[in-house]
Every structure is written in C-alpha cells, then in structure tokens.
Amino acid sequence: MVGLEDWVYGLKLDSNGKITSFSGPFYGDFDRTIRPSGRREALIPAGFFKVVCFVNKETNKLDVRAFVIYQDEAALRDKSGRSLYNKG
C-alpha cells in the first residue's frame, strides 16, 4: 500500500489540510490461513479497502476516493508495495 500512501501525501488539499480515511479487510477468493507456532490457525484477508475523503484545493469541493488492494499472488510478489491499485 506504499504506492497508495504516496498518492495520499501528494493530494492538493484545501487550506485546512484535513483529510479523513478509513480502511478494513475483506475476505474472498484469495483468503489464506497461517498457523503461528503454538497458536490457533488464523485467516488472512484477501485484501483491504480504503476510502479517502478531502476537500480538493483545485475545485473547493469534497472529493471521495475508494480503493481496493488485493493480497493475491501478484500483489505479494511486489515487495516494495508500489504496484498499481484498483481505484473506484
């Protein structure tokens, strides 16, 4: 998600500079499990969603963006976290 975080840092915010975001996991086709030594099996999410809300300096209007970051095989190979993300 480093690529997405870089995008957020580069936003053109209005003069108050406020931004709101929330995120969470989702489960589906790419779920995996892991069993740490001495622990119960844990489910690893298929990916995460993130919603970013801010007042855009250029339009002076509320801007809302939603993203989906999968944890599929291709995403896991991207060790730097800078692969393209699916933006909706």
Score class of each variant (00 low, 15 high):
Val2Ile: 06
Val2Arg: 03
Val2Trp: 02
Gly3Cys: 01
Gly3Arg: 03
Gly3His: 02
Leu4Gly: 01
Glu5Thr: 01
Glu5His: 02
Asp6Glu: 03
Asp6Asn: 00
Trp7His: 00
Val8Tyr: 02
Val8Leu: 06
Tyr9Arg: 13
Gly10Met: 07
Gly10Ser: 13
Gly10Ile: 08
Leu11Gly: 10
Lys12Tyr: 08
Leu13Phe: 04
Leu13Ile: 05
Asn16Cys: 12
Gly17Asn: 12
Gly17Val: 05
Gly17Glu: 09
Lys18Gly: 12
Lys18Phe: 12
Ile19Tyr: 10
Thr20Ala: 13
Thr20Asn: 13
Thr20Trp: 13
Thr20Ser: 10
Phe22Thr: 08
Phe22Arg: 08
Ser23Ile: 00
Gly24Arg: 02
Pro25Gln: 00
Pro25Ser: 01
Phe26Leu: 03
Phe26Glu: 01
Phe26Ala: 03
Phe26Gly: 00
Phe26Lys: 01
Phe26Trp: 07
Tyr27Gln: 04
Tyr27Lys: 04
Asp29Val: 12
Phe30Thr: 04
Phe30Gln: 04
Asp31Phe: 03
Asp31Ile: 02
Asp31Arg: 06
Arg32Gly: 03
Thr33Met: 07
Ile34Asn: 10
Arg35Lys: 15
Arg35Ser: 14
Ser37Met: 15
Gly38Tyr: 15
Arg39Lys: 15
Arg39Ile: 11
Arg40Trp: 13
Glu41His: 09
Ala42Met: 15
Ala42Thr: 14
Leu43Asn: 09
Leu43Tyr: 09
Ile44Lys: 11
Ile44Gly: 02
Pro45Phe: 07
Pro45Asp: 09
Ala46Arg: 05
Ala46Pro: 06
Ala46Gln: 10
Ala46His: 07
Gly47Cys: 09
Gly47Ile: 11
Gly47Met: 08
Phe48Asn: 13
Phe48Gly: 10
Phe48His: 13
Phe49Pro: 01
Phe49Met: 05
Phe49Thr: 06
Lys50Gln: 12
Lys50Ile: 04
Lys50Trp: 05
Val51Ser: 07
Cys53Gly: 00
Cys53Pro: 00
Cys53Ser: 05
Phe54Ala: 00
Phe54Cys: 00
Val55Pro: 01
Val55His: 05
Val55Ser: 06
Asn56Tyr: 07
Asn56Pro: 06
Lys57Arg: 11
Lys57Ala: 12
Glu58Gln: 13
Glu58Pro: 11
Thr59Met: 06
Thr59Cys: 08
Asn60Ile: 08
Asn60Tyr: 08
Asn60Gln: 14
Lys61Pro: 09
Leu62His: 00
Asp63Ile: 02
Asp63Tyr: 04
Asp63Lys: 13
Val64Leu: 02
Val64Arg: 04
Arg65Ser: 01
Ala66Ile: 03
Phe67Met: 05
Phe67Val: 07
Phe67Lys: 02
Phe67Gln: 02
Val68His: 04
Val68Leu: 09
Ile69Arg: 05
Gln71Glu: 02
Gln71Arg: 07
Asp72Asn: 15
Asp72Leu: 09
Glu73Ser: 09
Ala74Gln: 11
Leu76Val: 02
Leu76Trp: 05
Leu76Ile: 05
Arg77Leu: 14
Asp78Ala: 15
Gly81Phe: 10
Gly81Trp: 07
Arg82His: 13
Ser83Ile: 14
Ser83Phe: 14
Ser83Leu: 14
Tyr85Asp: 11
Asn86Met: 15
Asn86Trp: 14
Lys87Val: 15
Lys87Pro: 07
Lys87Gly: 10
Lys87Glu: 15
Lys87Tyr: 11
Lys87Asp: 15
Gly88Cys: 08
